[in-house]
Amino acid sequence: MLSSLTTGFVSRLRANDQAAWFELWQTFGPVIRAQLSKWGKGRIGSQTVQDLSQETLAALSDSIDRFDPTRGARFSTWLLAIAKHVLGDEMDRRNAQKRGGNRRPVELDERWMAGRVEGVDEAYEAAVFRAKVEAAIRMVEKESDFTDFAIYRMRVLDGASGKDVAASLGLSEPTISRRLAKVRDLLRRRVAQVIATYSFTEEEVAEAERNGLELNPTKADDALFDESVAEIYHRQMELRQRDEEAARMGG
């Protein structure tokens, strides 16, 4: 069952809201590019991957009108199916060019709507999930006070001790703890919101807890939550770094 956030976001996409599409691109672009590179296995260059990932979103916008949420597809599967279709189209086009014929591009395989797409693995699902958490962190960065988020970043993402953060900013440790908790609470809410937005199934919604992000925690869960966020953040950093390097190499 789709949440209102999801349907709202899908509605924006359907209405061709450019900002919604940009948001989607910002959040999941690296994941799509990574997946396309993985499937391409060196047969396509980084520049082509860039182009294909854009085409993926373009194809997504075409198919959004045929989207049927009742058939139980996951959001990640939805993205992946489109990406796979675009890549297959590109490969067919190349083969057709090699043979000198004019083979028509393949039709979009819409079996993804029933959740049947080959190539969906755990790594991909994890990457999509990380992208969602990253989007939530960005939202928190945008909404919270700069110093508050700087405290959270130094304490959690950079791994500095509370004492060091307090000394660095000239604040007391209790103040640091208080402002840290404030950002953490906001982040929890935003993670829940983002996951609800970019999830089509109940299973996807439950991913947060499976990854250590308890959205309704006790006090003891805070440390685990922070640790999970830091790990996700760093892995996502690594993904983006590789994406950026590939882009540089491809010129």
């Binding site: 990253e134 962190i137 960005r138 960065e141 993402l157 950079d158 953040y233 760093h234 996502q236 950093m237 983006r240 770094q241 994406d243 950026e244 540089r248």
Partner: peptide
């Protein structure tokens, strides 16, 4: 490059 935007480490 700051690939992560404002969140770049």
């Amino acid at each position: 490059f700051p690939a992560h935007g404002g969140l770049s480490q």
